[in-house]
Design a protein around this nucleic acid. Structure first.
Lengths: 211, 211
DNA sequence: CGTAAGATTGATCAGAGTCAACGTACGTGG
DNA sequence: CCACGTACGTTGACTCTGATCAATCTTACG
């Protein structure tokens, strides 16, 4: 997700915006005037069905981009998981730059391509993996994306409800999956803090090797 | 998925390749040298887990593009659902053109963005919708993408197994979901031929309106 | 210290998966 | 042209994973 320096050429055009925990950053369906780069904190994209079913599309951390897919309206809401600081760009500024700067356009294209690949990987997870496999895959993803405070440590900024909605499960099933991985000696769990004790076991539990 | 004329500027560089039903067009993991445009027929992208679980990423029809995300290897296999004709381009030809032609680069970017949006819509489907909702959404998608032989007619080129792997279900559950929609008077089913009798009912059954 | 929000665990339920039987259409060859 | 065989689709019976409902525990915070 991180796209180092992708928007650096435009940084002088950015407004800095800050949000508290649980603040609404973008509303689903609103006209998509801005896109964002996360400077610090964690945010989530959220979609709702009429009856209240909720889906978290992705979690975004420092360096990640948001809303750069130039849809006319935001197709999902964006909310702050933790206090968060973002740089806000006009969508048109990005488009204009891409329309005049080939190197910038190439980097934007590469970023979009890696987004597609990441999203497609999640389709297999949601369509075909068991609850425990999803949780193991999630921990592997977070370990790769979060700076560890100690080797093997994962400090999750989001609660169990967010994880559940990200993985297409319920809160209770997330708890039970974590408990199972703990009982198998693969991780240690303490609320937001996870310690990976057996990295290979975790990868195996996630069924992440294909073919 | 369709991107009218996107690759037209390169059409003189294309090789025409044809495949029979169930032929392998691209192997998962292979070096991604080519990308394709479907000229006729239907193809599917497929991913496998070690234990044989299968996921169909997408179905592609005439005008749709394939493998244009410039990954170093193909992240999923591609197979012919029906006899199919494709135009084959070197990935490098597309990249080179995008690196020198701003208008082409913009169209390629728009295409990628619409791919991302379509894929994200599928995340909600796989993560939060019931079997019958998935099937209703699938029929709505196919109705929009396939040329109808008569008003309300959907002639599915793919079998129940492919539909099941596309929706994260089993063959039996797909059959039962179709049977339920039939019993509710929303569709008529005859093997590959579906008739939509109650378009509004189908949309409602798919829970496709958000918020 | 009291309260509230979140996490965990247990008991029960239901939706989808599995296993199995049967039906139907199509293709091949006698 | 019919008989057979095969592949695919459908339906039924039963199972199981994960959802739901409920109670308890933990932690953070006023």
């Amino acid at each position: 997700m991180a796209a180092p320096q992708l928007l650096d050429p435009l940084v002088s055009l950015a407004a800095i915006v800050t949000f508290e925990r649980e603040d609404e950053i973008v509303f689903q369906g609103e006209a998509a005037e801005y896109c964002y780069e996360v400077v610090s904190g964690c945010v989530r994209t959220v979609r709702l069905l009429e009856d209240g079913r909720r889906h978290v599309g992705e979690f975004l951390f420092a360096g990640d981009l948001l809303g750069c897919d130039s849809a006319p309206q935001y197709e999902c809401g964006v909310e702050a998981v933790t206090p968060a600081t973002l740089r806000r760009y006009r969508t048109s500024a990005i488009e204009d730059r891409a329309d005049t700067d080939l190197a910038f356009a190439r980097r934007l294209r590469r970023h979009g391509n890696s987004q597609i690949r990441a999203t497609r990987g999640r389709l297999m997870l949601l369509g075909r993996k068991t609850a425990t496999e999803r949780i193991a895959s999630f921990l592997i993803e977070m370990q790769a994306r979060l700076r560890p405070s100690a080797p093997g440590a994962i400090d999750l900024p989001m609660g169990r409800g967010d994880i559940a909605d990200y993985l297409g499960l319920t809160i209770e099933t997330v708890c039970r999956g974590l408990a199972e991985l703990r009982q198998r000696g693969i991780i240690a769990v303490d609320r937001t803090h996870i310690a990976v004790l057996d990295r290979c076991g975790l990868v195996r539990a996630g069924s992440d090797q294909v073919q």
